[in-house]
Every structure is written in structure tokens, then in C-alpha cells.
């Protein structure tokens, strides 16, 4: 699956997204462009109303841009598909009628057409990676929020998609669990170097997770800036804190102005 070197994995160019509410046509994002390379941890960051989740859903294929185009490995994104696995914020994203193992296996069987044996092997491997082997045969309603999100991540990763799309997956977790989940995600990335696009409204989380951060301004969502080489910011020498402050000032300076 090698592309021409240099060509991005995901290319979003000039994308305007609009959706209808009863009585109004809302512009969520306007002419947004960015490119995600292989093994990027690409974070979309911005205050509420900047269209970051809408943008992620457009990459997921759930809504069509009214302007511009989204291509992944040269293919135009037309509809949802298992090459772009989603991890949602909501805890009810697991199928409640399937156990943890069955939940992870289901897309492998259904969309990847693996044999039961292969699917189970792969599912067990990734469930082990998020350290949930003890909950293998539990139904989702018996799991805590953090465990559910980890199953969803395992399910996404087991599919080995071109890109993993995460829509504020840790936003509904308590602070301690959130930190554990962030650390685990980074650990998993170290091991497999998957490509992930991550939406968050927490500057701190963006710096921790991402190697690149796209800053969006609200109403309508526009690209304001991109933070690169986020990896070099370290929490120990205070450079991460410094970066966090800079990003914060940048995102909220205008808000106060008007």
C-alpha cells in the first residue's frame, strides 16, 4: 500500500461543510485545507462551534462537502467505510448485544471477511493490547466508561484502517481515567505507528496526543494555524506548558476582542 513518496495519506482541500437545521442552513466549516501523512497523530483543536467534529464526520464519509474534496490515498471519500474506523465520544458505541470479543470481531468478520479463527486471533491480540483480556466475554453494560472506550479503540485498531478517526473519545471520562487512556493510546502508537486523526477541545490533550495540531476558529470554522513538531514540547521542562499558554492566548484572544 505505498503511495508515491511525499503524497499525503489524507488530503482535505478547500472543504466547506454545511448542514440544515429546521429553518436554517448552518456553515460548519469554510474552505478548510490540511493534509495528514502516514503515522501522523493529527489533532483538530478548537472551541465549540469550530466544526471540528463535523470535519471529522466528513472524513468519515457521513456528510458530503458542499465545496472542496476529501481524498484518502487518492480515493475520493463518498460514504462511510471500514478503511476509516471511527471511535466516538459516546459510551453507547459498542453493540450492547455482543460481548467485548464479539464486538471487536464483528467488523473483522463482516467488513474484512476474515475467517472466524483469524478474526478471533486478531481481536484477542488487540483486546490484549488495551489490557482488557479479563473482560473478553463481558457484555458492554457491565464495563466502565473507560473500558468501553478502550474496547472501541481496540475495535478500530484491529481493523487496521488507513486512518483511525477519534471524536473526543476521552471527553466523557473522569480525569484520572482520561490520563490513563491517553498514555495507553500513545503506547499503542509507539508499537504500531498507526495514523490517527483526533478531535478535542482540550489544549492539554491536544499537546499530549498530537504531533501536529490544526487550530480552528469558530463561526464558521476556519483554519487559524497549525502547530508542528508538537513532540518536542516536553511536560518536564515547561515547554509544553508554554505551548499550551500560547495556543490558549491565540484561540481566545479574538473572542475577547469582539
Amino acid at each position: 500500500m505505498t503511495n508515491e513518496t511525499g503524497a499525503p495519506l489524507l488530503d482535505v482541500s478547500g472543504v466547506t461543510l454545511r448542514y440544515k437545521t429546521p429553518g436554517a442552513l448552518i456553515t460548519a466549516t469554510e474552505r478548510v485545507s490540511f493534509a495528514v501523512n502516514r503515522s501522523d497523530r493529527f489533532v483538530l483543536l478548537g472551541p465549540s462551534g469550530c466544526g471540528k467534529s463535523t470535519l471529522l464526520k466528513a472524513v468519515g464519509g457521513y456528510l458530503k462537502p458542499s465545496e472542496g474534496s476529501i481524498t484518502i490515498l487518492g480515493r475520493k471519500v463518498m460514504e462511510p467505510g471500514p478503511d476509516r474506523m471511527m471511535v466516538f465520544q459516546e459510551f453507547d458505541q459498542l453493540l450492547p448485544w455482543k460481548t467485548v470479543l464479539e464486538n471487536v470481531m464483528f467488523p473483522l468478520l463482516d467488513a474484512r471477511n476474515l475467517s472466524r479463527k483469524e478474526a478471533e486471533e486478531k481481536a484477542r491480540h488487540y483486546i490484549d493490547k488495551v489490557s482488557l483480556t479479563r473482560a473478553l466475554h463481558s457484555y458492554p453494560h457491565t464495563l466502565s466508561g473507560g473500558m468501553k472506550q478502550r474496547v472501541a479503540i481496540a475495535r478500530g485498531m484491529a481493523m487496521e484502517p488507513d486512518i483511525l478517526l477519534m471524536d473526543e473519545p476521552f471527553a466523557a471520562l473522569d480525569a484520572l481515567t482520561r490520563r490513563t487512556c491517553q498514555d495507553e493510546l500513545l503506547q499503542l502508537w509507539e508499537e504500531t505507528r498507526f495514523t490517527v486523526m483526533f478531535v478535542t477541545h482540550s489544549i492539554n490533550e491536544a499537546i499530549k496526543i498530537g504531533n501536529r495540531i490544526l487550530l480552528l476558529s469558530p463561526h464558521p470554522g476556519r483554519v487559524k494555524a497549525e502547530v508542528v513538531d508538537v513532540d518536542t514540547a516536553s511536560p518536564t521542562d515547561g515547554s509544553a506548558g508554554q505551548l499550551e499558554k500560547e495556543i490558549h492566548d491565540m484561540l481566545f484572544s479574538q473572542e475577547e476582542a469582539h
Binding site: 457521513y62 460514504e79 462511510p80 471500514p82 471511527m86 466516538f88 453507547d92 464483528f106 467488513a111
Partner: peptide
């Protein structure tokens, strides 16, 4: 729920 529907469509169903 919308989430479950989106999960289903994500699988290409």
C-alpha cells in the same frame, strides 16, 4: 441511537 447507526454505517452496512 445516532451513534449506533453511525457505527453500523462505519462497517459499511
Amino acid at each position: 441511537s445516532t451513534t449506533l447507526r453511525m457505527v453500523g454505517r462505519n462497517y459499511g452496512l
